[in-house]
Structures are given as structure tokens and as C-alpha cells.
């Protein structure tokens, strides 16, 4: 590898909800430009893993370094602007227009002046083919439109990493293509990405690395070729038999 920065370094991450131990010691590194797809059975802790990275869930123990900085309760808010998150259910803010959804954070965080933010938002809306939706409220948009707007909302802050948790699971087949197309484009432009998805062909196509979680542990990881064509563990073999 060339001289690339390590965006994320995770040491022995554990998370329990009461007695339910969901993450059981995850060690993980993410290097700039990588696109990591997280796979695993339902309940294996994929969402929890992503949500611990930006402290949507506070880790029970372990360390997460972002750009070499140890994440803590105190600095997490400032650090979050560097890691965009895209949710399964889009989570556009219902009482704000599309334009307000896009500009709220950059303006509030004083990263951009309002007119700069609006200009940027308009560019991005035009780019995803929704220039006429700036003043629409989320309730008037289709799922695919909402998700693409949620993605450019995350991009408004120019994050170093984008975290996607099943971004297409709540969409109809037609919209799935549009959203995947946008993610593919971000990937082509070198965006560092972590994504949980059930779209296996997309995972194969986009991933530089596949990580497989089972019972809150990474039990196998490798390139898409290694993972899909030469799986090592019986657990992954069994999983692939089911999903492919």
C-alpha cells in the first residue's frame, strides 16, 4: 500500500445491552479509500458495530481511534462530522424541507455560510436529478428519493468515512438501483466506505474487503474473491450457501 492514512482503528470493542453481549471483542482497521462490506446473519451485531463507531451506541469497553484520536463522550460530537451515517429508514428530518435538511448541519456547525451551503446543496440535488425538490418536505418524496437525499446530506459535511446500514433494505426494487448507483459513484471517487448490505452482487462489486460478523466477532475477512470463492470457515460456507 502507498502512503495512506488509517482512518479508523478499533481495539477489542465490546458492547452489551444489559446481559445481552452483542459485540464480543472486535479488532478492526480501516484505511483511507477502503470499502468494507460487513456481512453476517441477522442479530450478529452488524448494526451495533456501525453504531458504536460513531457512538450512536456507547461502547461497553474497548477503544476506537478515528484519525488517531481516541473517541470519548467529550469529543464524539466534534468527531461525528467526519463520519457520515446513512440509515436504513433514511431519517430525513420531517419538519424541515429538503434544503433545510441539507444545510442545517453545515450552517449550525459553522462549517459553511448559509449561501455557500445552499449553493452546494443545489449542486448536489442537481447531481442526483432532484433539483426541483429543494423546497419539498420529506413526506412528499419516494423512498429512493429520500435515501439519495440522505446520502448527499451526509456528503454536505465532506466526511472522511461514510457508514451505511442497510441503505436499500427499505426500498422497492426500482429505487434500489438508483441508490446503489449513487453509492457506486461515491466509491469511484475514492470515498472511504463501510456498508452493511444484503445485496450480495453489489457487495462483490464494490468491496475492497469483506468482513464477516458472527455472534459479535469478526470470524473471517478478506477480498471479495477470497471471501466468496474460497471461504475458509464452515460458518461462512454455510452462510454463502444460503444467500447465493
Amino acid at each position: 500500500m502507498e502512503n495512506k492514512n488509517t482512518d479508523l482503528k478499533i481495539k477489542n470493542l465490546r458492547k452489551a445491552f444489559g446481559k445481552n453481549k452483542v459485540l464480543n471483542g472486535i479488532d478492526f482497521e480501516l484505511v483511507e479509500g477502503e470499502r468494507v462490506v460487513i456481512l453476517g446473519p441477522s442479530g450478529s451485531g452488524k448494526s451495533t458495530f456501525l453504531r458504536c463507531i460513531n457512538w450512536m451506541e456507547e461502547p461497553t469497553s474497548g477503544e476506537i481511534y478515528f484519525d488517531g484520536v481516541l473517541l470519548t463522550e467529550k469529543n464524539i460530537r466534534k468527531m461525528r462530522r467526519n463520519m457520515g451515517m446513512v440509515f436504513q429508514h433514511f431519517n430525513l428530518i420531517n419538519n424541515l424541507t429538503v434544503m433545510e435538511n441539507l444545510t442545517l448541519a453545515p450552517v449550525k456547525l459553522k462549517l459553511m455560510k448559509r449561501d455557500t451551503a445552499e449553493k452546494r446543496a443545489k449542486e448536489l440535488l442537481r447531481h442526483i436529478g432532484l433539483p426541483n425538490k429543494a423546497n419539498a418536505y420529506p413526506a412528499s418524496l419516494s423512498g429512493g428519493q429520500k435515501q439519495r437525499i440522505a446520502i448527499i446530506r451526509a456528503m454536505m459535511l465532506s466526511p472522511e468515512v461514510l457508514l451505511f446500514d442497510e441503505p436499500t433494505s427499505a426500498l422497492d426494487p426500482e429505487s434500489i438501483g438508483d441508490v446503489l448507483e449513487l453509492i457506486r459513484e461515491l466509491a469511484d471517487r475514492g470515498m472511504t466506505i463501510m456498508i452493511v448490505t444484503h445485496e450480495m452482487s453489489f457487495a462483490k462489486e464494490i468491496a475492497t474487503r469483506i468482513v464477516f460478523l458472527d455472534k459479535g466477532k469478526i470470524i473471517e475477512e478478506g477480498t471479495p474473491d477470497e471471501f466468496f470463492n474460497h471461504p475458509k470457515t464452515p460458518r461462512v460456507k454455510e452462510f454463502l450457501k444460503k444467500v447465493l
Binding site: 460513531n54 461525528r80 462530522r81 431519517n91 428530518i93 448541519a105 456547525l109 446530506r153
Partner: peptide, 27 residues
């Protein structure tokens, strides 16, 4: 108010105050 609304604000790095006044309270 859907918890996802608060989470959207958190993920964007907004303060609790902004999340409450701009997102949760109006809804």
C-alpha cells in the same frame, strides 16, 4: 417523535440543544 429523527441529528454532529429545538420540539 421517531428516535430516528434524533439519531439523524446526532449523526450530523448537532448538539443536544439544536436537536431538541430544531428537530424534536417542532415535531
Amino acid at each position: 417523535v421517531d428516535i430516528g429523527q434524533t439519531e439523524a441529528g446526532m449523526a450530523l454532529g448537532l448538539s443536544r440543544r439544536t436537536i431538541f429545538f430544531k428537530i424534536v420540539a417542532p415535531q
